[in-house]
Design a binder for these strands. Structure first.
Length: 532
RNA sequence: GCGCUCAUAGCUCAGCUGGAUAGAGCACUGGUUUGCGGUACCAGCGGUCGGGCGUUCGAAUCGCUCUGGGCGCACCA
């Protein structure tokens, strides 16, 4: 709708026109303050200009009225336009809010180290990435969801060591001396047990077999991770192993040409000349490449796969890393603007107002799987998709276990279920309802219809601004509008029954489509669960 | 110390391509249909949009500065 009006105005004025949704619906569906910007050029008052402009819209069938109020130009869409659009949407429900963009995008997210299960911070990035993925695909973008597996370097060695320590302590009951850094958590005991089963007890004590043990364990950890993700409806197209990249290092280093130089027996990348704070080591004195080297090869590989755009979602604590990777991309001869890095901030949890207790057995980390178990995947997804990803977030678990309007996911689901219930209560058939006209609905119904038809704009905006919370915000407010309408008006048995039910179907379509874009399935009925 | 980032109601957060009276939920107070799921609805309370300066017809939104929080500043990943 907005695109249509926007295009119309662009044509009329020969420029991009600011189009906004007035807070107060009495000002119309859309409004533009264009007269204010024209005032200076035309040397006339904004009021005079908007008065003139308003009358020039006579005869446009999209609008039922175009009014000039205090310099603003207010547009009201015609019933005809709205009702035709609504009928189209119901007939092509799977196409609703879709577009046909054609860009190829590589979206890399989560990429948590394969050394343990996902924690709550990973979950946020995962939900953010997956929601973007769904939005983008709905708009027609060809997006590949990719997970970068850091299966090389210290951390993998540490994984092997940690399993051995855990096993020697728990299974062999030995006194174990713990080094400064090692992993801890319940999953390590499981791994140790499985390792003994698979390799025999010797594996726990033989230091020379640490690597072997780690590489075996890494696969199992990745299974745990993909299961955690799958339980939240998050799936990847491709996994790229860091370990598979280093063989390409010499070639990639050569490709960077002047961007890499030797000093003090090490190889450095001249990232300072491209906006980084200083140059960075990429190959140590002993010849081992650093982590950055792996990332450079990886990004080179990404660009060689020729996408139109690249999106990385990183934990916010990695933000200082952006300039050096962008520098590398430039040295490799690619446009660093094509690489977009989005950040996902920290999360802290409360439960009934108190800081959430982290269990020692989990290694003092809040596991994603524990939270999913406690509040469910839908609520988890909703929370993370409701907040800007780049600001830190604190939330209370208790709020999302409640089953009333204070719980937004519940509130939205209830709106959808309410519609399904009333549809099934009606004696009218689906065909009879669809055949109804959406004209002469009255002001409140008209307003609800407009709200429901706004989803396409919201989806477009949420994806392109990378602000997925716009979608959840919209769904909450649409659900609110539905509940209020339902409270104010009787539907069944009235002479408007068919048209109001058709209106409700449009609302349901919008809610269902919106929820599915958040990875949440709309419910057709609500069951009251027992509280504990 | 340097860099990035954030600061909006008591709490958790929206709003930020500058635009018409700053929004929602929680909490608190009060109210609601002889009717479709009251698992809902309405109203009240509550804000110098961290402080200051500037740009503009117009600033929560843009710029500068100060204050305060978070993160980063590895030859770790």
């Amino acid at each position: 709708m907005k695109q249509r009006v926007s295009a119309l105005l662009r044509e009329k004025f020969g420029r991009e026109v600011v189009l906004e949704k007035p807070r107060d619906r009495s000002f119309g569906h859309f409004a533009t303050p264009i007269a204010f910007s024209l005032a200076k050029e035309l040397r006339k008052s904004p009021m005079a200009i908007s008065d003139e402009l308003a009358s020039s819209f006579d005869g446009h069938e999209e609008f039922s009225s175009v009014e000039s109020v205090k310099g603003y130009l207010n547009f009201r869409l015609s019933e005809n336009f709205l009702s035709e659009y609504a009928s189209w949407a119901l007939e092509h429900s799977s196409e609703f809010a879709k577009q046909e963009k054609s860009q190829k995008i590589l979206l890399e997210f989560v990429s948590a180290n394969p050394t343990g299960p996902l924690h709550i911070g990973h979950a946020r990035g995962a939900v953010y990435g997956d929601t973007l993925l769904r939005l983008g695909r709905h708009l027609g973008y060809d997006i590949t969801a990719e997970y970068y597996v850091n299966d090389a370097g210290n951390q993998i060695d540490l994984l092997g060591l940690s399993i051995q320590l855990e096993g020697r302590s728990n299974i062999l009951h030995q006194e174990v001396e713990y080094p400064e850094s090692y992993y801890r958590g319940e999953y390590l005991s499981d791994l140790a047990l499985q390792a003994v089963e698979h390799f025999g007890k010797e594996i726990l004590s033989d230091e020379s077999r640490q690597k072997e043990l780690a590489l075996w364990a890494k696969e199992i950890v990745m299974e745990i991770i993909t299961k955690d993700l799958g339980d939240t409806n998050i799936f990847f197209d491709t996994f790229v192993n860091e370990s598979s990249l280093y063989s390409d290092w010499e070639r990639v280093m050569a490709k960077m040409g002047e961007g890499v130089y030797e000093k003090d027996g090490k190889m450095w990348i001249a990232s300072e000349s491209r906006g980084d704070e200083k140059d960075r080591v990429v190959v140590r004195e002993d010849g081992r490449p650093t982590y950055l080297a792996g990332d450079i090869v990886y990004h080179n590989q990404k660009f060689e796969r020729e996408y139109d755009h690249y999106i990385n979602i990183w934990g916010a604590d990695h933000h200082g890393y952006i300039p050096r990777v962008k520098a590398a991309v430039e040295f490799l001869g690619y446009e660093s603007e094509k690489l977009e890095v989005l950040l996902s901030q920290m999360v802290s949890l409360l439960k009934d107002g108190e800081p959430y207790k982290m269990s020692k057995r989990a290694g003092n980390v809040i596991l994603m799987s524990d939270i999913v178990e406690e509040i469910g995947s839908d609520a988890l997804r909703f929370i993370f998709a409701s907040k800007k990803s780049d600001t830190s977030l604190e939330f209370d678990l208790a709020e999302f276990k409640k089953q009333d309007s204070s719980n937004p996911i519940f509130y939205i689901q209830y709106a959808h279920a309410r519609i399904q219930t009333i549809l099934s209560k009606s004696d009218l058939s689906k065909e009879e309802i669809l055949a109804a006209s959406l004209k002469n609905l009255g002001e409140s119904a008209d307003s609800l219809l407009f709200d429901a038809l706004l989803l396409p704009e919201v989806v477009d905006d949420a994806f392109h601004s990378r602000q997925v919370q716009k979608l959840s915000e919209y769904l909450r407010s649409l659900a609110g509008a539905l509940h209020k309408f339902y409270y104010d008006y009787r539907i069944i048995g009235t002479e408007d029954e068919a048209k109001l039910l058709k209106l409700f179907m449009v609302v349901a379509l919008s809610l269902k489509t919106g929820l599915s874009l958040m990875g949440i399935e709309a419910k057709d009925y609500m069951t009251k669960e027992d509280e504990d």
